[in-house]
């Protein structure tokens, strides 16, 4: 079956999430690991997925012919989004790995939220610019 690369990666990530959660749940039920460790490991996994995906963002190039904006600006925005995602994901992973479990979730979310805000802000700005450009064309 032919599948696009991003779709295949999304399915792979979903499969890893499911498999890890099932394995960790089984281990917890047999009391090999504590509930706190399960939360920690799942948090670290989520942070690592954010980190890995954000790391690849600047390397994913859209063909120049398909770009509707300045290629230099597009490259800069990709780099900003990539860096924000990597730093957010790294913070999220480290918070779950090192912080006391009572505050790990809150700390991890407070570290990832600014990165998500940056990415969402840039995406909204790009959409707004594209809509404005189309309006000017018509």
């Amino acid at each position: 079956m032919i599948m696009h690369q991003p779709l295949r990666r999304a399915f792979l990530i979903a499969a890893i999430y499911l498999a890890t959660s099932v394995v960790l749940n089984e281990l917890r039920q047999h009391q090999f690991v504590s509930a706190g460790t399960v939360v920690r490991l799942m948090g670290m996994l989520m942070g690592l997925v954010v980190l890995v995906c954000a790391n690849a963002i600047p390397k994913t190039l859209v063909p120049l012919a398909r770009l509707s904006c300045d290629p230099a600006r597009e490259q800069t925005l990709r780099r900003v989004v990539g860096w924000a995602g990597v730093l957010g994901g790294l913070g999220y992973t480290l918070a779950y790995a090192l912080a006391p479990i009572a505050v790990a979730a809150r700390l991890a979310n407070s570290l990832l939220t600014p990165a998500v805000a940056v990415v969402a802000g840039i995406m909204a700005w790009c959409v707004w610019k594209r809509v404005n450009a189309r309006r000017r064309e018509t």
């Binding site: 963002i57 600047p58 490259q75």
Partner: peptide
Amino acid sequence: ADLIGAEKSGRTIMYRLKMSVLEE
């Protein structure tokens, strides 16, 4: 090395940076 990307644009070849955050 997958550090830059080349793309033909008419008669010229355009080069673009293709570095992941980690590589940078």
